[in-house]
Write a protein that binds this DNA or RNA. Structure first.
Length: 645
RNA sequence: GGCGGCGUAGCUUAGUUGGCUAGAGCGUCCGGUUCAUACCCGGAAGGUCGGUGGUUCGAGUCCACUCGCCGCUACCA
């Protein structure tokens, strides 16, 4: 009976801040896919969850004087509540703090260690102590940390490494032999050219600098870092490697890992390499979808429009938001969100087209046939065209869905919605109703309308469960009357004699101008919250006045400025501080033309240890303040050389 | 700088291996209709398919160059 299994996953989300529309987007898409596969006869497993370890969460909990787990529990409750609101039909919600996951991650670690694919860092690596970061031979220039410019050293600091480099060729081959492995296709070259071809470095997979994580099984000083801990969730959730005969055998390898484009790299290089090392099959497909951006770029506080999915569902309903997200945007590409785009889409497709179609059909059955769905008797013009289209939609829908083309999948359904509306105009039931002789024809038209709506209701079900149920209620039908996916491909499954029920509009039409104003006023208090949240995260540890006194801040005048010949983001400045003129390299080329800086008096960190930045010496650093896309230099209208304190 | 992608009607976009009279939705204008959530249906206007040159009987589709965006990557003390 089952066509086979289908295992789909979302990323596990990091619960350090409130989830936004982007997380909802991924999860809603995965949910629609899962529901679609269930409807079409697959045995589906749908996994989502949370990634709960790491320094950031440990700190956040500390700041609130809480145990990490207790702190995270609260946030995770919120996430689960959000998914409940969005009617997400996940089968498993994994938390990386779940005992079974921790145990299995340790088993994986042990396995890889035993095999020799994990080794302790006696590795000739370069370590930058202040940055707590390891660097590779190629990254280190002149014994300097590429991140901070300070000297690095060959360290004896212990760390465990995964032999990522060993799998480079196998990965390349896999990309070549499995064009469907990574979609959209454009990402594939990015991975191959930027990572695989230049060569992979072994990956540091343990930390000793914080403790909130899964301990390395045989070396408790170390906790397992995010790569192994988080990525492996897709397999540990099924039992791997502890319980290989249950869900793991049944559902692995995953059919689709749905991820945002920013984490494609981890899912198509690191995760597959780990699986290769474990001798486990690779996921069949990783799909990196685009981002939903706000007008003018990323989510920005100054724009004042932070998108909160909960508010939107409260105002327009879950189904409207889900429909909008999947219909409006091409799944592989970025798209722009605005309230206006949302409201226009809801009005046009849901209120005017679908909602109104149901409304007018039910009203006509009510008015012309006492609310009873009549039996069709006399066929006429336009019937065949409507029927042919109606029964053909499900196949086209399947084709689009299997390509994760949600937008066009929905559009296929709406072609039928529009065709059905047109059928009403063509047959003009209100004219037939005036002529008693035409009763048979009228009955047929009314039946065909109700039947088309029945088909539509089945087709939209994976995307809009609640709406489907509402339509059934209005048609007076129950879930045993032509509601399977197969039933959507045949015309005439709707029983006659049903008693329709007029009800509230499926999607009330929105007064867009008025609504936009209200949303505008709603978004303002939100803005402040977000700002405060961000601030909290970025706070640095307290220092004393002595610490601060070590920094020598002076005013310097920019006397000359040019672009760095070998770097896009760097400017080379000649800065006069008192009598001395020195060269400072600064990463502000994105923000300023070189000419406009000459003559400016800026604040300089004068006693910073000199470094070479892509071959150019830099003695000091220019202070600037950055917020989102904006950057301003700290200027001081006073003689150059003046001390700042 | 390296690698990759994208530029098609006012907006969002479809155009698989070259045959298109370049489609669609929204918006605009005109008309029809009254069953319906002032909705729906029809029609029209609007495109030198970023630019230049080439290959070809024929190019939005292939090639070269060029302009403009974007992504990843290196460099932002």
């Amino acid at each position: 009976m089952s066509k086979g299994t289908f295992y789909i996953t979302t990323p596990i989300y990091y619960p350090s801040s409130k989830l936004h529309i982007g997380h909802t987007y991924t999860t809603v898409a995965a949910d629609a896919m899962a529901r679609f596969k269930r409807a079409t006869g697959y045995d589906v497993k749908f996994l989502t969850g949370t990634d709960e370890h790491g320094q950031k969460l440990q700190r956040a909990a500390q700041e609130r004087g809480m145990e990490p787990k207790a702190y995270i529990d609260e946030i995770v409750e919120g996430i689960k509540k959000l998914w409940k609101t969005m009617e997400i039909s996940y089968d498993i919600f994994i938390r990386t703090t779940d005992d079974y996951h921790k145990r299995r991650v340790q088993q994986i670690f042990q396995k890889l260690y035993d095999k020799g694919d994990i080794y302790k860092g006696e590795y000739e690596g370069w370590y930058c102590t202040p940055c707590e970061a390891f660097w590779t031979e190629t990254q280190v220039e002149d014994n300097k940390c590429p991140d901070c410019g300070r000297p690095v050293e060959l360290t004896k600091e212990e760390a465990y490494f995964f032999r990522l480099s060993k799998y480079q060729d196998a990965l390349l081959k896999h990309f070549e032999n499995h064009p469907e492995f990574l979609e959209p296709l454009s990402r594939k070259n990015e991975m191959i050219n930027n990572f695989l071809k230049p060569g992979l470095e072994d990956l540091c997979i343990s930390r000793t600098t914080f403790s909130w994580g899964i301990p390395v099984p045989f070396d408790e000083k170390h906790v397992i870092y995010v790569w192994l801990d988080a990525l492996s969730n897709y397999a540990t959730a099924l039992g791997f490697p502890e319980e290989m005969e249950g869900d793991y055998r049944k559902y692995w390898p995953a059919d689709i890992h749905l991820v945002g484009k920013e984490i494609v790299r981890f899912h198509t290089i690191i995760w597959p390499a780990m699986l290769m090392a474990l001798e486990a099959p690779l996921p069949k497909k990783v799909f990196g979808h685009g981002w939903i951006l706000l007008e003018g770029g990323k989510m920005s506080k100054s724009k004042g429009n932070v998108v909160d999915p909960v508010i939107l569902t409260e105002r327009y309903g879950v189904d409207a938001l889900k429909y909008f997200l999947l219909r409006e945007y091409s799944f592989g590409q970025d798209g722009i969100f605005s309230n206006e785009v949302l409201l226009n889409r809801i009005n046009a497709d849901l209120a005017n087209d679908l909602g109104n179609l149901v409304s007018r059909t039910v009203a006509m059955i009510d008015k012309y046939n006492g609310g009873i769905v009549p039996a069709p008797t006399i066929a006429g013009d336009f019937d065949e065209e409507l029927k042919n289209l109606a029964v053909s939609v499900s196949a086209k829908l399947e084709e689009k869905m299997n390509k994760l083309d949600f937008s066009n999948a929905l559009d296929e359904i709406w072609k039928l919605v529009r065709r059905t509306n047109k059928y009403i105009d063509e047959t003009a039931p209100w004219i037939l109703a005036k002529d008693g002789e035409q009763k048979g024809r009228l009955d047929t038209v009314l039946y065909n309308l109700a039947e088309s709506i029945r088909i539509i209701s089945v087709l939209i079900r994976p995307f809009m469960e609640a709406t489907t149920k509402k339509i059934w209620m209005q048609l007076g039908m129950d879930e045993h009357q032509g509601t399977t996916w197969e039933d959507s491909a045949s015309f005439g499954k709707l029983p006659t004699g049903l008693k329709v029920r007029k009800a509230e509009a499926l999607f009330p039409r929105i007064d867009i101008a008025k609504e936009l104003e209200e949303l505008e006023s709603l978004s303002k208090p939100k803005t402040v919250e977000v700002k405060e949240e961000e601030k909290a995260v970025e706070e640095k540890p307290e220092i004393t006045i002595d610490d601060f006194a070590k920094v020598d801040l002076k005013v310097g005048e920019i006397v000359e400025c040019k672009k760095h010949p070998k770097a896009d983001k760097l400017l080379i400045l000649q800065v006069k501080i008192g009598k001395e003129t020195r060269q400072i390299v600064s990463g502000i080329a994105k923000y300023f033309e070189s000419e406009e800086l000459v003559g400016k008096k800026v604040v300089v960190v004068a006693n910073l240890k000199p470094v070479k930045l892509r071959g150019e010496e830099s003695k000091g650093m220019i202070l600037a303040a950055e917020s989102g896309e904006e950057l301003v230099l700290l200027t001081a209208d006073i003689d150059s050389g003046a001390q700042v304190s």
